[in-house]
């Protein structure tokens, strides 16, 4: 049975290219290039594999500025059929609660869907709050931290990745699914797919069209790097000698 899927794609500042002021330790986002939030590619790949097996459509949904078009094109190149950009002017983005309200507003304007797949967290602020909030507000079941996902015609089913075990869960449609990166390796698009993606249409809805009033509840004052100083101790000797020295050092520090 084909599935009509929505995949959330977030355009984030590339965390590998942040600039840090050496003296103050503050992080600057000025001129930092953007990219697709890493685990969103896993979410999209999971959707692509389901579509390969069962048929259906994949529509990506992104809340962001026009900068986000770059990431949306990547998602289209990977194989998404349609894409929506909920356009905003807020460069620093919204918090999870605001994003959830915007998404709900946007979803009402999008044709019907069976399952919404997203990453368990975005690789910039990584609050991991969105999937739970979204499911609660829509009153839909949530399969979270999924490391496998399948659909047998009646219910979605897969394994949840918990700290020390895997939990097999299932639910009926419609549903929200959040995935962990272990679910599958995202594909690398071919040149043909990239060229096709540049021709696909990205539907745009301006955030003001949704008529929402959701003032932020907190303000980001600043970002500082956390420095980790390494002791750079080298223990030499045979494996058993080294093991003993390491044990002594760690217990002296109170770690063991």
């Amino acid at each position: 049975m084909p599935l009509d899927m929505i995949v959330l794609v977030k355009h984030i500042y590339d965390e590998d290219q942040l600039k840090v002021d050496q003296t103050t330790g503050s992080v600057s986002l000025q001129g930092v290039p953007g990219k697709v939030s890493s685990f969103d590619r896993n979410a999209l790949e999971a959707a692509l594999r389901l579509r390969q097996k069962l048929g259906g459509t994949i529509t990506t949904l992104t809340v962001g500025t026009d900068e986000a078009n770059k990431s949306i094109r990547e998602a289209l190149a990977m194989g998404a059929d349609n894409a929506y950009l909920i356009r905003s002017n807020v460069a620093t983005g919204y918090d999870a609660r605001q994003t959830v309200e915007i998404l709900i507003g946007a979803l009402s304007k999008i044709p019907r869907w069976d399952v919404l797949i997203c990453a368990e967290g975005s690789t910039d602020f990584y609050t991991s709050l969105l999937p739970g909030m979204l499911a609660e507000r829509l009153n839909l079941p949530l399969l979270s931290y999924m490391r496998s996902l399948d659909f047998d015609g009646r219910s979605l089913r897969g394994d949840r990745s918990l700290e020390r075990k895997l939990e097999t869960v299932e639910c009926s449609l419609p549903a929200i699914v959040s995935v962990v990166s272990e679910i599958c390796e995202p594909r690398i698009p071919t040149l043909l797919q990239i060229m096709a993606a540049t021709k696909k249409q990205i539907s745009k809805i301006d955030v003001t069209e949704l008529g929402l009033q959701i003032p932020p509840r907190y303000k980001l004052e600043g970002m500082l790097v956390k420095t980790v100083t390494r002791k750079r101790q080298i223990f030499e000797g045979s494996p058993s000698e080294v093991a003993l020295k390491l044990y002594e050092s760690l217990s002296k520090e109170g770690i063991i």
């Binding site: 690398i188 990239i194 060229m195 993606a197 540049t198």
Partner: peptide, 15 residues
């Protein structure tokens, strides 16, 4: 250069 050139470059780089 066209937009697809940069997209392709990143994909090849990643590969």
């Amino acid at each position: 250069f066209k937009p697809e050139h940069e997209m392709f470059r990143q994909v090849v780089r990643e590969f």
